[in-house]
Amino acid sequence: MATFELYRRSTIGMCLTETLDEMVSNGTLSPELAIQVLVQFDKSMTEALESQVKSKVSIKGHLHTYRFCDNVWTFILQDALFKNEDTQETVNRVKIVACDSKLLSQ
């Protein structure tokens, strides 16, 4: 199953990466196993987002920068408004990084 490494940049992914880094650097863990854990995280995170998350969000804002490179869209929005069912958040600058969902189904 193909996975994205995209979600490693999220909070949970960064926390895991830091943990693995520490454990590899102090010799508790082999680098190979650490990578296996990361790959498993990619899978688990993707699955969880597909199966466990149902919420919808709308995003509006001024598009400051757009970039499409290696099948990854990057948007930098200014004065963006995020709305979901419960709340809405405004951010004066936000970066959106999105991989092509079709790549996963291949």
């Binding site: 804002g61 995020f82 958040e89």
Partner: peptide, 16 residues
């Protein structure tokens, strides 16, 4: 966003 982690299943974006 704003120190909150929010997950979504779908999102629509409209940008100028």
């Amino acid at each position: 966003i704003n120190n909150k982690d929010i997950l979504f299943n779908k999102a629509t974006g409209e940008f100028d």
